[in-house]
Nucleic acid binder design. Structure first.
Lengths: 339, 339
DNA sequence: ATACAGTCTGACACCGGTGTCATAATGTCG
DNA sequence: CGACATTATGACACCGGTGTCAGACTGTAT
């Protein structure tokens, strides 16, 4: 036997038509039980596998989802945000559970991304994953909508955007962080992240945090805020700049764990003790949050559930049914950095 | 325009045949420059994308590679070995660079994995990634070979196995670790990992380590060795069992960073100071190695290069050219845990 | 004018399945 | 026995491209 076996080969050996083979292999109730058995047997013997291209071409669907991961182009090549990697893991598992394959692709937000996976029938739908720079591809999301491409986004639900999203309740997470620090009587708070609507997720975390403190009559002054993207490095430098400006605070809320880890490093280098002098709270609960010293108090995002919801919602959308954007509850994980 | 545009639609608008459209879009030198331009223009206007299924079906190749990630089934669902995630990142990038798509799939070593990606023409080749349990799927690799499936494995090159592998020089890495500890005058060494050929990679690391010490007249006694799989938990418990057995040592070589992180935790809990009482050296250089306290001395595997080599070798194999298995040089990263 | 090479294009088979329709074989019932 | 439903199957068009081949058209040498 040279080359792969086709359904015609099976038909030949089974003494039936190719149509019948096709039906038998898909366990159509139309075929005789005995024929079905024989066909399956021969298929197994020939190590036959349905040609996905032919099948997909005919049925006009691919049983495949595509995951597009957007990263800040400044990011170091080899390091990928561990939070997204964790999401990737859960999305992969969720896909497998639903019988779908997953195409993975990294996109640089700076470059033109041609989300042609669906147009070219390589995938039935897209999952878009990434922090920040939403504004940049706002117009591209519109293109996707115009083309009736099926897709779900991870991240903040932005008003006036009709796309389907799954996200953590970032505002609620900020509330949790603030409440915790209030409980610890650490209300002279700094914030590191991006308190603009450039990065809607970080902004929502900040708003929840700020509003909760405000309700207690406490303001987070602009001086105590520094911008950072979600990298250790960025958190480190942002914190150093606060220290250099002689800003005082006894608690620090970082918009992500990586930022928090960089912040702790900067604080420690400056002789500031964590948690004794400054309590630190992060966001995400990446694996490293448990490893750092002191271990990091953080707001956990349930990536397993998130991946499952992204896939479920997308599949529902693909089936043409109605779905609403989903908000997942965050959870506070208290560790050494805040006690 | 309902549904996606096809090459026939373009042909109609351009006033040429569908054949010409197909050629024009692929920039065949056979078509007139003016025609080519017009076709491209219309294609763009119609948002046309070549149907990959049709194209793949005809050309019998998919421009797609599949990554199969094998994990210990005991592993916690949501946590994936960060080393492999890092590999995944670099493989994805390498694929993108070569113009290939990447299908990602997690496999449980315990379950039957039907590596039918290539048979079903979903992928042109496979990349197999995973620690340990190689013995379990040895026979399945043979099946792949029998079917002439193109694939590369990450991991130890095992004698008598004719498959193509890319791996870190694990033996050399073990040598680096031993030499470093000898330099630090810490030769009363323990080893945690798997010193059987059940896990060829861990075993090679151990051999390099042991042989180097032996050359100095130092034996690593069986008492000072404990088995562990590559998880923090497993490293933690293995180390605790050493401590419980009252085993003494002033240095510890762990077969992976996760094991080392668990080991440090167990040591610290037992009141053993790292690095003062015990120097610890890990393997992999995952991101967390830099975060833990004390930060972890480790043998780095260059994942960027590894991913690139896996993809390059696989593509060479697919082209039908000869390739040899590749061994990548490890590099010692000295941090606080050993000084 | 004829022959011939070079350029460009269209017709058509083909990849390997899936879905539809027609039909043969068998069973059932009045 | 004829009408009709049920079951099982084969023939065939079709999905949307790609590769091959034949041929039209132009320009140039004979």
């Amino acid at each position: 036997m040279k080359g792969k076996a086709t359904s015609f080969d099976i038909a030949h050996y089974a003494g039936v038509s190719q149509s019948t083979v096709s039906r038998a292999l898909r366990n159509s109730p139309l075929v005789n039980e005995e024929t079905r058995r024989r066909v399956h047997e021969i298929a197994k013997k020939l190590n036959y596998k349905v040609d996905k291209n032919a099948s997909n071409l005919r049925t006009q669907q691919s049983s495949t989802l595509a995951l597009l991961l957007f990263e800040d182009p400044t990011e170091d090549e080899s390091q990928i945000n561990p939070f997204f990697l964790s999401m990737l893991g859960s999305i992969t598992r969720a896909c497998a559970k639903e019988g779908y394959d997953l195409l993975v692709s990294f996109q640089s937000t700076s470059s033109d991304w041609h989300a042609d996976y669906e147009d070219s029938h390589r995938a039935d739908g897209l999952i878009l994953l990434g922090y920040g720079d939403y504004i940049d591809y706002q117009s591209k999301l519109q293109t996707l909508l115009d083309n009736h491409t099926k897709f779900v986004c991870w991240g903040a639900t932005v008003d006036n955007r009709p796309d389907l999203t799954v996200s953590c309740d970032n505002y609620g997470g900020g509330v949790l962080a603030a409440k915790h620090l209030i409980d610890m009587v650490r209300t002279d708070c700094a914030f590191i992240g991006d308190a603009s609507d450039h990065s809607p997720e970080f902004f929502a975390r900040f708003k929840g945090f700020r509003d909760t403190l405000k309700a207690k009559g406490i303001e987070v002054s602009d001086r105590k805020m520094a911008n950072a993207i979600s990298t250790e490095d960025s958190g480190y430098h942002a914190t150093r700049s606060l220290i250099a400006n002689n800003v005082k605070f006894n608690a620090l809320f970082a918009a992500s764990d990586l930022i928090a880890i960089g912040a702790i490093k900067a604080l420690q280098e400056a002789g500031v003790r964590v948690p004794h002098d400054v309590h630190v709270v992060g966001f995400d609960n990446i694996a490293a949050a448990g490893y750092v010293s002191p271990s990091l108090t953080t707001v956990q995002q349930n990536t397993t559930l998130a991946g499952q919801m992204l896939v479920d919602n997308l599949l529902t959308l693909i089936r043409g049914e109605a779905v609403a954007s989903t908000l997942l509850p965050p959870k506070l994980i208290v560790r050494q950095s805040s006690r």
